[in-house]
Amino acid sequence: MKYTQNNLDKLENILGESDYIVRYERGTFQSGWCLLESKKVVVLNKYLDMEGRINTLLDLIPQVTINYDKLTHESQLLYDEIVKNAKSVDNA
Protein backbone atom coordinates (compact mmCIF):
# COMPACT_ATOMS: atom_id res chain seq x y z
CA MET A 1 0.00 0.00 0.00
CA LYS A 2 1.34 3.42 -0.92
CA TYR A 3 1.74 5.98 1.82
CA THR A 4 -0.70 8.64 0.66
CA GLN A 5 -3.36 10.72 2.37
CA ASN A 6 -6.00 9.01 0.22
CA ASN A 7 -5.01 5.57 1.53
CA LEU A 8 -4.90 6.87 5.10
CA ASP A 9 -8.43 8.21 4.61
CA LYS A 10 -9.60 4.81 3.33
CA LEU A 11 -8.21 3.06 6.42
CA GLU A 12 -9.83 5.63 8.71
CA ASN A 13 -13.12 5.09 6.85
CA ILE A 14 -13.08 1.37 7.66
CA LEU A 15 -12.97 2.26 11.35
CA GLY A 16 -15.45 5.11 10.98
CA GLU A 17 -17.98 2.94 9.18
CA SER A 18 -17.82 0.53 12.14
CA ASP A 19 -18.58 3.38 14.55
CA TYR A 20 -15.00 3.87 15.76
CA ILE A 21 -13.71 7.38 16.28
CA VAL A 22 -10.12 7.97 15.16
CA ARG A 23 -8.30 10.72 17.03
CA TYR A 24 -4.75 11.98 16.83
CA GLU A 25 -3.37 13.00 20.22
CA ARG A 26 0.02 13.40 21.77
CA GLY A 27 1.10 10.96 24.40
CA THR A 28 3.55 8.25 25.29
CA PHE A 29 2.03 5.33 23.44
CA GLN A 30 4.30 2.30 23.36
CA SER A 31 2.90 1.07 20.05
CA GLY A 32 1.84 4.39 18.55
CA TRP A 33 -1.83 3.83 19.39
CA CYS A 34 -4.29 3.31 22.20
CA LEU A 35 -7.69 1.64 21.97
CA LEU A 36 -10.57 2.57 24.24
CA GLU A 37 -12.66 -0.50 23.36
CA SER A 38 -15.77 0.32 25.36
CA LYS A 39 -16.05 3.75 23.74
CA LYS A 40 -14.86 2.62 20.29
CA VAL A 41 -12.15 5.26 20.17
CA VAL A 42 -8.79 4.71 18.50
CA VAL A 43 -6.14 7.21 19.58
CA LEU A 44 -3.04 7.46 17.41
CA ASN A 45 0.11 9.33 18.27
CA LYS A 46 -0.18 12.63 16.41
CA TYR A 47 3.58 12.77 15.87
CA LEU A 48 3.57 9.71 13.61
CA ASP A 49 4.36 10.48 10.00
CA MET A 50 2.15 9.29 7.12
CA GLU A 51 3.96 5.95 6.86
CA GLY A 52 3.69 5.38 10.62
CA ARG A 53 -0.02 6.22 10.66
CA ILE A 54 -0.81 3.86 7.79
CA ASN A 55 1.31 1.02 9.19
CA THR A 56 -0.27 1.46 12.61
CA LEU A 57 -3.79 1.29 11.18
CA LEU A 58 -2.85 -1.75 9.06
CA ASP A 59 -1.70 -3.49 12.27
CA LEU A 60 -4.69 -2.32 14.29
CA ILE A 61 -7.65 -2.97 11.96
CA PRO A 62 -7.44 -6.80 12.09
CA GLN A 63 -7.41 -6.62 15.90
CA VAL A 64 -10.63 -4.66 16.41
CA THR A 65 -14.22 -5.73 15.89
CA ILE A 66 -15.34 -4.46 12.50
CA ASN A 67 -19.00 -4.55 11.50
CA TYR A 68 -18.47 -5.91 7.99
CA ASP A 69 -22.09 -5.33 6.92
CA LYS A 70 -21.81 -1.60 7.64
CA LEU A 71 -18.79 -1.19 5.34
CA THR A 72 -19.14 0.17 1.83
CA HIS A 73 -18.19 -2.22 -0.96
CA GLU A 74 -14.85 -0.43 -1.43
CA SER A 75 -14.11 -0.65 2.30
CA GLN A 76 -15.09 -4.34 2.36
CA LEU A 77 -12.58 -5.10 -0.40
CA LEU A 78 -9.82 -3.20 1.39
CA TYR A 79 -10.70 -4.82 4.73
CA ASP A 80 -10.57 -8.30 3.16
CA GLU A 81 -7.13 -7.50 1.73
CA ILE A 82 -5.86 -6.19 5.10
CA VAL A 83 -7.08 -9.27 6.98
CA LYS A 84 -5.64 -11.61 4.34
CA ASN A 85 -2.25 -9.88 4.52
CA ALA A 86 -2.31 -9.95 8.33
CA LYS A 87 -3.00 -13.70 8.33
CA SER A 88 -0.22 -14.38 5.84
CA VAL A 89 2.23 -12.42 8.01
CA ASP A 90 1.10 -14.35 11.13
CA ASN A 91 1.57 -17.67 9.33
CA ALA A 92 5.01 -16.79 7.98
Score class of each variant (00 low, 15 high):
K87H: 10
I14K: 04
M1C: 03
L48S: 04
T4H: 04
Q5R: 13
K46Q: 05
M50A: 04
L35P: 03
L48G: 02
G32A: 06
T72Q: 04
R26M: 10
W33F: 15
N91L: 13
K70T: 07
A92P: 03
H73T: 11
S31D: 14
E74Q: 11
K40N: 14
L48Y: 02
I82Y: 07
Q76I: 02
S18W: 08
M1Y: 08
N6Y: 14
P62H: 12
A86V: 05
Y68M: 12
K10L: 13
D59M: 10
N13Q: 15
G16C: 09
T65G: 13
L58K: 08
Q5I: 13
K70E: 09
E17R: 09
L58M: 11
Y20L: 08
L57F: 02
L8F: 07
I61D: 06
I66H: 09
I82C: 03
L58Q: 04
R26S: 14
Y47T: 15
K84I: 01
C34T: 04
E17F: 08
K2F: 06
K84D: 04
I14L: 07
L35H: 10
L71N: 06
G16W: 06
Y3C: 01
K40D: 08
E25C: 09
E25Y: 08
L71S: 04
L77N: 09
G16T: 12
T28R: 15
Y20K: 09
E17H: 05
A86Q: 09
L35A: 13
S31Q: 14
K10D: 09
T72M: 01
N55H: 00
F29Q: 06
V22H: 03
N13Y: 10
I21Y: 10
N6S: 15
K87I: 10
D9K: 14
Q76R: 15
V41P: 07
L35N: 10
N45G: 07
T72D: 04
G32D: 03
I54D: 02
V83H: 03
L77R: 10
I54S: 03
S75H: 00
V41E: 13
L77A: 10
E37S: 14
M50I: 15
Q63L: 15
C34H: 13
V64D: 13
V22F: 06
V43K: 05
Y68V: 14
M50G: 00
Q76V: 05
S31F: 15
L44I: 03
E17G: 06
L58V: 01
D9F: 09
D80P: 00
L44F: 03
L71T: 02
N45T: 00
D80W: 01
